[in-house]
Design a protein around this nucleic acid. Structure first.
Length: 577
RNA sequence: GCCCCCGUAGCUCAGUGGAUAGAGCAUCCCCCUCCUAAGGGGAGGGUCGGCCGUUCGAUUCGGCCCGGGGGCGCCA
């Protein structure tokens, strides 16, 4: 059976009508779903903008469009309403074909070729591997994973990547922190700096190193603190000097401590995300940029185009020439490249790897960084429009009516893992994407912990479980339902559900276009509400055989869409609750 | 000071250049002899922060205010 989605069918018909009413006039056809069912199944607003272009009365133009509309068996009637809407009422038969179509397509229902196979990369989370992921990272993970799923569902060739900052100062601080905790275990006492990593996981790593290697990495405390500036007066200089001492005292062994801490934290992060249902095609190491000389190459590209200069011993990128408010350092006075320089190289590398478009998901605190990176890409001869940045606003934790401050270095934060264990992966994933990404997210821990059954995710999962339960009670062959004649579906609740199911592909396309996976979450709530309404209104297993088959086909199709939608959000669709 | 986000029902938030602006929670009333009551039905609750503009039409777009949150490093 050839099934054409009503929206694309109608769009085609209106396009033909417009071509005959106003040849040569380029106008956009918008088909929307009216809020009230009395206004039909679709409303076309084409007459109103066209009337303006033609300087005519919109309702007259609408009448002409309607007259020019090609005959179509699926259209029951049209009406001209309000200021010039053309409301379209579909024949029930047009809607009743849908369950069979959905059941035939299965998990493919809702997919589209919107992306036309475009290769695009989505980079997200990319938290420094210096400690456990916290609830803020969780939002980026849930959002990024869902968005990537939606993009893949709509015909994009999606590559998921995590950028590992394994080369910077933060990693040195983690290595130092681990070593200092280790020294304590060996009996060497060096005051632990307040701005080093305070978390208990550092002590755990130190204990492992001590258990494995005993005193092998022990150095006298006096040597560790030799010529180190005062911690109170110069906290960052104090830290840097300790790092320098660690490197010279340990020699090649420093790489072991550094590597051990990195592997431990990265491994922990990987496990955490895997348990959360968030997977990556590639974990890209910042260090490989350094090792392959890509940073020098990126800076050379900037230099070639004349956009860098020396000042105060540092090398600067003239980002003000590209709309930034001040120029930025790419190589520090000490000869070390900045994170910014690495990021330019990284993005040039992304483009070289053949992604036609690259989507970065960043925390909102990085917004000032966008102009800088895009400017640098342009300066290096790349097209900055191939980079899209989706900013995700902060997740703020509340507990006991108090905002909880978070700091990775101070070890004060609620980890993603703790949150997942408290409220469950499904509720977590869903809660995170229930807010649009540019909205601040207040995460109320008390609510999440104590009233997790109020979480809307259960409402949706319950709808799925109810259907599964009915179909199990029925016990028939699903193949029968694919061929069921759905003509008996005329109850208002049944027609409402059919309309809702027809919306799914449109919702997925909108979610992809607007980088808005939350649209899926809200859609699923509506879909579940329609199902629950029908469940209470109608007995599925009663009535004559024809009606029963039709209703079972309808709810089986609903189950499929619930499943597909939940899958996009990384949430389970349980058969029992 | 500059930049970003937000302001919609008591609370938390969706939504849209169009017709009578929605949901959940909370409050009140009602519905299990029946496929899962983690459900359903109903009631109350709104100057869509304010002013000005663009438009046939603005809660939606633009400008200016007011209020809340965040960012502005030779950190990453």
């Amino acid at each position: 059976m050839n099934y054409i989605e009503p929206k694309s069918l109608l769009t085609g018909l209106f396009r033909q009508a417009l071509a005959s009413v106003a040849p040569g006039v380029d106008s956009v056809i918008e088909l929307t779903r009216p809020k009230q069912s009395s206004h039909g199944d679709y409303a076309c607003n084409a007459a109103m903008p066209l009337a303006r272009a033609l300087k005519r009365n919109p309702r007259e133009v609408a009448a002409e469009i309607v007259a020019a509309l090609p005959a179509c068996a699926d259209i029951a009637r049209t009406e001209i309403a309000g200021p010039g809407f053309i409301n379209v009422f579909l024949e029930p038969a047009a809607k009743q074909r849908l369950p069979g179509h959905i059941l035939a397509r299965g998990g493919d229902y809702g997919k589209s070729d919107l992306g036309r196979g475009e290769r695009l990369q989505v980079e997200f989370v990319s938290a420094n591997p210096t400690g456990p992921l916290h609830v803020g990272h969780g939002r980026g993970a849930a959002f990024g994973a869902s968005l990537a799923n939606v993009l893949a569902f709509t015909g994009h060739d999606v590559y998921r990547e995590y950028y590992v900052n394994d080369a910077g100062r933060q990693m040195d601080i983690l290595a130092l922190s681990t070593w200092l905790r280790y020294l304590e275990l060996t009996g060497e006492f060096v005051p632990f700096p307040a701005n080093a990593y305070q978390g208990d996981y550092v002590k755990v790593m130190a204990e492992s190193v001590f258990a494995l290697h005993g005193d092998r990495y022990r150095q006298p405390a006096a040597a560790v603190t030799a010529a180190v500036p005062d911690a109170a007066a110069e906290p960052e200089g104090h830290l840097d000097a300790l790092i320098a001492n660690a490197k010279s005292l340990l020699g090649a062994d420093y790489a072991y401590i550094h590597g051990y801490a990195l592997e431990e934290q990265l491994g922990d992060c990987r496990n955490d995300l895997t348990e959360f249902g968030v997977n990556f095609d590639h974990w890209f190491s910042e260090r490989t940029l350094h090792d392959a000389g890509l940073i020098e190459r990126a800076v050379a590209a900037l230099r070639k185009h004349g956009h860098v200069y020396d000042q105060d011993g540092a090398l600067w990128f003239r980002s003000t020439a590209f709309g930034d408010e001040k120029d930025r350092v790419v190589r520090r006075e000490n000869g070390i490249y900045t994170y910014f320089a690495a990021d330019i190289a990284y993005h040039l590398n992304k483009f070289e790897r053949g992604f036609s478009r690259v989507i970065d998901i960043w925390g909102a605190d990085h917004h000032g960084y966008i102009a800088r990176v895009k400017g640098a890409l342009k300066a290096a001869g790349a097209d900055p429009d191939r980079l899209a940045v989706a900013l995700v606003q902060f997740a703020v934790l509340w507990e006991g009516g108090q905002k909880k401050s978070m700091s990775t270095r101070a070890g004060q934060y609620v980890t993603l893992r703790e949150l997942r264990h408290e409220v469950g992966n499904d509720a977590c994933r869903f809660f995170y994407v229930l807010r649009k990404s540019d909205q601040h997210l207040d995460f109320d821990l008390d609510l999440a912990k104590s009233q997790s059954s109020d979480n809307p995710v259960y409402y949706i999962q319950y709808a799925h479980a109810r259907i599964a339960s009915v179909l199990a009670a029925w016990g028939g062959d699903m193949e029968e339902l694919k061929a069921a004649d759905c003509a008996p579906l005329v109850h208002p609740q049944e027609l409402a559900l059919l309309n809702r199911l027809a919306e799914f592909p449109e919702i997925c396309a909108a979610a992809a276009r607007e980088f808005s996976p939350h649209l899926i979450a809200y859609y699923l709530k509506d879909l579940a509400a329609d199902l629950h309404g029908l469940y209470v209104a109608c007995q599925f297993l009663a009535g004559d055989a024809a009606l029963r088959q039709a209703r079972l086909a309808l709810i089986a199709a609903t189950r499929q869409v619930l499943r597909s939608g939940l899958d996009l959000l990384g949430v389970c669709a349980p058969d029992k609750m």
